[in-house]
Design a protein around this nucleic acid. Sequence first.
DNA 1: GTATAATATATCGATAATCTATATATGTCA
DNA 2: TGACATATATAGATTATCGATATATTATAC
Lengths: 115, 115
Amino acid sequence: MSINKSLLTGSTTMLILKLLEETDMYGYEMIEELSKKSQNIFKLKAGTLYPLLHGLEHKDMLTSYEKSTGNQRIRKYYSITKTGRKYLNEKTKEWKVYTVAINNVLGGVDFAPVQ
Amino acid sequence: MSINKSLLTGSTTMLILKLLEETDMYGYEMIEELSKKSQNIFKLKAGTLYPLLHGLEHKDMLTSYEKSTGNQRIRKYYSITKTGRKYLNEKTKEWKVYTVAINNVLGGVDFAPVQ
DNA sequence: GTATAATATATCGATAATCTATATATGTCA
DNA sequence: TGACATATATAGATTATCGATATATTATAC
């Protein structure tokens, strides 16, 4: 994840699900979207993403389908499921609780809630 | 770490150094302080903390000394070094960048900076 | 007085998240 | 045609944290 992998762990799943909450996407697209939306802070590696997507599909958080680009190339699109949305919701709540707790320890002010 | 260990990783070091920036502490005290300051969100395990403290001492982020409580019991106090303070400063900055990036992806508003 | 719980430090092995490296193939542009 | 971007995939290594376990002291309840 570039910035410093050791600050995250676990948030990657939340971010991926969040992207898919808006629209279906293929893996490579997620890497780019995540980089763009985070102003180049998150540079997710393919070696992290693909096994993660397979795992999420296995856990019924996602479903996938293949789609041709018009020529030879076939992209694998992922779609979030109801289970995935529920999980995303839980993770987002956890994230808020977690950041408030960290900021309390750091002695900073609390911040406006996400959404 | 209770809340969900997979949301952290790496932030534990920052939190410990932050505690020690204010005053010298012994391990068990850090577990309690962290729990208290985070409103019981962080429940750091002894099995996480002690190896972490040893590692930080090895990296010259901390120094330690033993202190008697007046009776048999001897507590091992840790003190942050200049290197440790520098590292804490970097980690705190990273944490701010990271949370802003996550919140950008989540579509929430940015929050007031820590400190 | 004695059992139990809290205090205090420590190590070991397991688990999980992410990385690097590697592989394979297609598309585009100089 | 060669290089680079696009696209997916797996294997093995690293690292953070945990649960379990061990040991010893102190405080409290029965």
